[in-house]
Design a protein around this nucleic acid. Structure first.
Lengths: 194, 194, 194, 194
DNA sequence: GATGAATGAGACTTCATTCAT
DNA sequence: TATGAATGAAGTCTCATTCAT
């Protein structure tokens, strides 16, 4: 499909440029150059600069959700699921470094519309965790005296902070696996029932 | 009026404006208006817009470090210390909502100098955690098979993500105390030895 | 419209505006209005305000050098050449009054880069005189006890001061020809050998 | 006299600062710092920045006129007078380098009021030459077929251009004396009768 | 659809000038 | 008189967006 070709080409360029310079420091012409199209062409596919960011969030996070759900669905034990989520999430951060950078940085930006989006697509992603937790609690695998919403945030925040280290400091002190394992370990130890 | 008076007045205004609109969307004139000074006056106290942000990081985080260290120093058990850190951190987020917002958002920005600062003052703040962990490991209170650096990030990330909820969503679903308790609980359960 | 078209259009506007108001009193918006383009357009062709002045020096003086060399090359006697230089120089001042004004005023400005430029393009122009003098001295037409460098400056200075009169006082007291003739006369009388 | 003390102190500072940075690049605070007074104090002695420059022209050129007239008055032969003028003028340029720089640069600036001043005080200075020429012509020492106005400008222009060399290029290629002599030589040779 | 030159609103920053002390 | 902190008008420059080709 021709049209979506250029749509994605621009989006990929935007991921790269936003990731490197941040949304506000990135110029439309940077993205255009990276995507190898004219500045004006971008406006045939997106309404404005901000729309690129929003579309990027929506579509790219959508893909991540699909991917990570596929990985999790291969497990049945909620403890394993949590570990798989951690592993997969951190792997994404390494594999799609620039996208991760954009999501980390720009998702924290203020601005009403971003906040709304956060509560939509991004929330869907993070809610994968709370679903696991919830099911785990129902199955008496996880402690029921803890609130799923708090666990969800704590677990995601832990992974997210770990990612931040890698994004800022490319020469990793910790490996992917040991990070995923230790973090999962702490949480599982902390939240398993009995 | 003492010089330091206006310095702080502008900084407070900047905290408020940056917190509300973000660094890039904030105008110098917004800060000036909020501080009730002329635009030009700002440049008597700061070199440029960016310098305001940097000074803000340095000075305000410095104050937080002093405060939180004072709170922790009243405890002797590292488990209690972690809880106090969590409680105090979240309390700061609520009490100094706008400062927390600035720190959360802008500290994630890219830009080399920010990154450097991050690795300085902000790192000092977070390293309070790893010091506690480390001492706890030496005292055989905490598991030694986990790396202090990972625990530090996981714990701080958990609190930070919790804060994000409150910043974005002012009507708190969870109370300060239950949040601090549950997060500490998970971690302490997860990391205590034996 | 060719790119070079607008480049020259802006340069011509700059000559006019700089000539009338001086470099520092001239506004970019003045030049833009005179050139009938938007303010921003100027920055598609020049890096900054100062770059306009520098380019102006370089390119316009370059043209003058070509013109005056062509005029001189038609003479064989160095005495005639000096006269032709004088005549041509003063004619340029009248014909390109605004350019002359810019060159007179702004070339005197301090600032390192201007000084360097002065020593380049502008020096090339003035050195046309010293080349004539030098050849004249070799041919024993001009006195060899005088230093070509001093004669060059004296002759150019004389013409330049004459120009100043016209630039400041548009209603000429002296005609072009009599000025060129008398000045050449004085110098030729003063420097011819024997 | 107290008042004139500070008046002159500021003026001297202005000469230095204008000479180094040029009128437009000089800041009132630069002058204040150089004069060791507060910014506001300057406005007790001068109406505005421009007034400093104008006063500077008026008063300092006035002094130069007095000095140079005194030197000339010791000679009776107009040929000697011309040489003395040249010698004295160039000596001033070296001794009062910064003042010379200001006069050279800023006197060329456009702006109506400067132009008027030029035609006043500065003209008085230059007219010392034409008076000599005129008297010389009356005494049949100088050729009467040349117009005094043109000789005046040519002679002054020659000296002025020579000065420019020294101002821009501090390591003098030519000595003061040889410059004054050669220039006077050329002109006297060129304009003496018969 | 694609281009990219042109636009012009708006931001940061400077600095001459003022005025309360 | 003297100060110097404060002012705010105004200028340079950037860059998202448009539109004629």
């Amino acid at each position: 499909m021709k049209k979506s070709d250029k749509h994605q080409k621009i989006l990929n360029a935007a991921i790269k440029v936003f990731g490197q310079k941040g949304f506000f420091n990135a110029r439309i012409s940077d993205i255009a150059k990276e995507a190898d199209v004219a500045d004006g062409t971008i406006y045939l596919y997106f309404n404005n600069k901000y729309d690129i960011l929003l579309t990027l969030f929506e579509e790219e996070i959508g893909k991540l959700i699909v991917e990570i759900k596929a990985a999790i669905s291969q497990k049945t034990d909620q403890r394993e699921m949590l570990y798989v989520f951690a592993l997969h999430h951190l792997r994404l951060v390494i594999e799609k470094k620039e996208l991760a950078e954009v999501l980390q940085m720009e998702l924290r930006q203020s601005g009403e519309s971003i906040k709304e989006y956060r509560l939509n697509k991004f929330a869907d992603y993070v809610n994968i965790i709370s679903e696991i937790i919830h099911t785990g609690q129902e199955n008496n695998i996880f402690r029921r005296d803890l609130q799923a919403g708090i666990i969800k945030r704590a677990f995601f925040g832990a992974l997210d902070e770990m990612s931040r280290l890698w994004i800022l400091n490319p020469n990793h002190t910790y490996t992917l696996e040991e990070s995923a394992e230790e973090i999962s370990d702490i949480f599982l130890n902390g939240i398993v029932a009995d």
